[in-house]
């Protein structure tokens, strides 16, 4: 009896440890996105022509804009190491089994209880590949002198990597692992689909934002066509996210597991719209400034960071919706919809 209890608590500890580490990686990545955005806003990307070293050194004197560029590289290195740590945590049983087999020792051939499932381990590996490719793209953008497509790919992959680390934190969380209240979708428009559509629209908006931002340094005016596309994208994001939040609050007001990310995402998108307008206004003026100055730097960086948060919370909401909701048989859907007039 007590041994079962011990085992259960051991599993719990393992899950909690993994979750905490995943949270650490996600938090560090958010900080890295801020550090990266500071590089762009200061036009510091080419403060050194050099990569992977900075001016031929591991630790150059970080004066002028090199502070931002080299600082970003150091934070990125830390995140890379943390990601390796996370993969080691995810694979430690696989590794132990492998070593035991090599040494000809008898031991578990089956999965260790509490061992993360294969798909979760693989997600960790995907994150590792992501961070490596991202580092290479970072180097490429320096070597090629910030061509639009590399800088945009670097900014977009940063957001995708961040959302992978957030997903890892979601999948290892207690609320996810222990969730057992799956309910059927109500209404004709399944919430899971609306959430997935919101995530995809935001990703598109992030790509548009990155293309816009990397089309003009602080001393140039932003291209109008891209700006208009980005504003149209913002309206689409706001509408589709509002629909998802509305449906969740209306149909499942008691399911905190869903309502919480939905309301947070909605609040963040409101903030993001304000920051977007402020970013536009400060960028309108910045070409007349002698150098990149506040509030332009602070506001554009905040807009990039808040964009990452909007994306991450929407991903959390989408994943949780897929966990908490399942399709209803079609005849029920029709009836409920008819009775509710949805």
């Amino acid at each position: 009896m007590s041994s079962i209890k011990n085992r259960k608590s051991a599993i719990k500890n393992m899950q909690r440890g993994l979750h905490r580490f995943a949270l650490l990686v996600a938090g560090a990545t958010f900080f890295l996105i801020i550090a990266g955005a500071l590089v762009t806003s200061h036009d510091a990307g080419l403060a050194t022509e050099d990569w992977p070293l900075s001016n031929g050194q591991v630790f150059p004197e970080m004066v002028g804009n090199l502070f931002w560029e080299h600082g970003h590289r150091m934070v990125a290195t830390t995140v890379g190491l943390l990601t390796i740590g996370l993969v080691i945590l995810l694979y430690r049983w696989v590794f132990l089994r492998f070593v035991k087999r090599l040494l000809g020792m008898q031991g578990h051939t089956s999965l260790h209880p509490g061992e993360p499932p294969q798909w979760l381990r693989r997600l960790g590996l995907i994150a590792l590949v992501g961070v490596i490719v991202q580092g290479l793209l970072g180097g490429l953008t320096v070597k090629l002198m910030l061509p639009l497509w590399v800088s945009t790919a670097h900014a977009t992959l940063a957001q995708l990597f961040f959302c992978t680390t957030v997903a890892l934190a979601v999948f290892t969380s207690k609320s996810w692992v222990q969730y057992d209240l799956t309910v059927e979708e109500k209404g004709t428009l399944p919430i899971r689909y609306v959430c997935a559509a919101a995530s995809a629209t935001i990703l598109l908006q992030l790509v548009l934002g990155a293309t816009l931002r990397h089309s003009a340094t602080w001393d140039k005016h932003l291209p109008t066509e891209l700006l208009v596309a980005h504003i149209v994208g913002a309206i689409a994001v706001a509408l589709i996210l509002a629909t998802a939040t509305f449906l969740i609050l209306r149909r499942h007001p008691e399911v905190k597991f869903l309502t919480r990310p939905a309301t947070i995402a909605m609040a963040l998108v409101g903030l993001q719209l304000l920051l977007g307008v402020a970013a536009y206004l400060t960028r309108l003026k910045s070409p007349d400034d002698p150098q990149p100055l506040h509030p332009m730097v602070g506001i554009t960086v905040a807009h990039v960071a808040c964009g990452a948060l909007v994306f991450a919370t929407t991903i959390v909401m989408t994943l949780r919706a897929s966990r908490a909701l399942r399709s209803a048989p079609s005849w029920v859907t029709g009836e409920v919809a008819a009775s509710r007039g949805i």
């Binding site: 639009l148 997935a196 559509a197 995809a200 598109l204 790509v207 548009l208 066509e225 891209l226 897929s322």
Partner: peptide, 27 residues
């Protein structure tokens, strides 16, 4: 759901390529 997401993903990729294309066109 996966089908749906695939569709969105394809759309996203196409639109972002278009966006990139339009901005590179000026160059």
């Amino acid at each position: 759901m996966f089908k749906q997401m695939k569709g969105w993903f394809a759309l996203t990729v196409i639109l972002s390529l278009l966006a990139l294309g339009s901005s590179c066109g000026n160059k």
